[in-house]
């Protein structure tokens, strides 16, 4: 079908040749830039969304709480998704212990797909930074939060997520949280 397009050669060549060259140069440019971009997708970390509404069981008890009850006060909350089997959680644990000292901040843990016994061992060994621990045995609550792995951490104020950390906390992120909570 391209046959006829090229048959009246001279006239069409004059239009087609530059057009083809420009298109290919454009494609080259896009692919060249694309090469240096990461191909791994990470959801946006800057949010200003309302916290999700859900019901959740309190860790190691039969008590159920709603999201409203958990984050009702006019202070900063830090929701930390963790599990005893998650190795990076051990790395960020000291930062959580540090943040615990901050009086304007309350740390809520969401225990992700864990066994009660293992989780308790973890906390006994490394201390407990959480004022409240919620239990997410099937991982569905984490999805309400838009999380997809452990650990993930959310900074909450006035019923809104103001910061989201994917993966373990580090020194810089720790300082950012300290600065945000004033």
């Amino acid at each position: 079908m391209g046959c006829s397009a090229f048959s009246k050669k001279n006239m069409k060549t004059k239009i087609l040749l530059p057009f083809t060259i420009v298109s290919f140069l454009f494609i080259f440019f896009i692919l060249y830039v694309g090469l240096n971009r990461s191909n791994i997708y990470i959801p946006e970390t800057v949010t200003n969304e309302k916290i999700p509404t859900f019901k959740v069981k309190v860790f190691n008890s039969e008590k159920e709480l709603t999201s409203k009850e958990i984050f009702e006060n006019d202070i900063y909350y830090l929701l930390n998704i963790w599990a005893s089997w998650c190795i990076p959680c051990r790395d960020e644990h000291p930062y959580l212990m540090q943040l615990k000292k901050n009086k304007k901040l309350e740390i809520v843990g969401l225990n992700y797909k864990d066994k009660v016994k293992n989780a308790n061992n973890f906390l006994n060994e490394l201390n407990n930074p959480y004022t409240l621990i919620l239990s997410d045995t099937d991982g569905t609550i984490a999805i309400e939060w838009g999380a997809y792995g452990v650990p993930e951490t959310f900074l909450i104020h006035n019923g809104k997520i103001i910061k989201k950390i994917i993966g373990p906390m580090n020194n810089n992120l720790f300082k950012e949280i300290e600065r945000a909570v004033k």
């Binding site: 569905t140 999805i143 309400e144 792995g149």
Partner: peptide, 9 residues
């Protein structure tokens, strides 16, 4: 794990 939970959701 994520996929299994999402299926449940």
């Amino acid at each position: 794990e994520f996929a299994n939970s999402l299926k449940l959701v």
